[in-house]
Design a protein around this nucleic acid. Structure first.
Lengths: 140, 140
DNA sequence: ATGTATAGTCAGTCTCTCTTACCATCGCCA
DNA sequence: TGGCGATGGTAAGAGAGACTGACTATACAT
């Protein structure tokens, strides 16, 4: 079953990152918040754009951003181009979160590289890119 | 980011199956219920075993099973070996759900086969199996 | 100038998972 | 064989995280 075969590694990565954040002291961040960091460019973005990229309602994204802001990971600044809008940006603490998450992901990837060997690993990664692009294109 | 690369295809499969069930008239089944069908052998299983396999509490599995039972997809029969226990089994309607789900999955797999070609597809599948096994072993 | 679209919030609901507490039964072993 | 810890399942309640609908303020096009 291809569904479970995709789910197991995905959940594994999620849990590894979550555990790494937890041991680094960022215990107020849950997997749901990954959607925010994942779609947030370094120079910030509007909440509605984040919501669209994460395929959720702006209210739901607002709920996640509000939490991360209250914990000091994000800040909202007024958008100079549009008085209705705000830009969501990482704080220094938020960038630290990203560093820890990246390190955890790199750890998993390193394990898989050892497991598969470099050729099979890079083929796997490129295949995932192909399939992801196909899946995203099909929905649009 | 390997996390998103795994998430996108996984969610795609999930949504395709969900949509297929919905158009086949099984609109009272949500992705959360997939965990039940996924771990339910043809001859049935105990709720606690299902919960363990799905990595959730027995109360949560009970919540899902109760819903599927009330919709006529599952039935509970007394376990002859243990008066505390019940066996959860599919009804005819439940087996019909499985058929529809399998067909939807086969459709996605067929698309990916066309996209990748047979060799790359089967390498991809085997790599997923390797990684899944590794991830599951690491947790245990 | 006016109407429509967009950014964001507020309030309420629903689903799904968790925890704690409990009952009934099982199986072991002193 | 009688008690006792382990196990199968339920009950009740809490909380996270998603949704919808209604609202305000601003932007933009006609």
């Amino acid at each position: 079953m291809i569904g479970a075969l995709l789910r197991i590694p995905f959940q594994h990565v999620t849990e590894r990152v979550h555990a790494a954040l937890d041991s680094a002291g960022f215990s107020d961040i849950s997997p749901a918040h990954f959607a925010v960091f994942q779609h947030l460019p370094p120079d910030g973005a509007r909440q509605s754009v984040l919501a669209e990229r994460a395929k959720m309602r702006k209210q739901s994204m607002g709920y996640l951003v509000r939490h991360l802001e209250s914990c000091g990971y994000l800040e909202r600044v007024a958008d100079p181009d549009d008085k209705r809008a705000q830009l969501v940006r990482q704080t220094a603490r938020g960038r630290e979160v990203e560093r820890v998450a990246r390190r955890a992901i790199a750890g998993v990837e390193h394990e898989w590289l050892e497991l598969l060997g470099p050729v099979r690993f890079s083929v796997f990664r490129r295949t995932l890119e192909t399939i992801s692009a196909h899946a995203e294109a099909r929905e649009a």
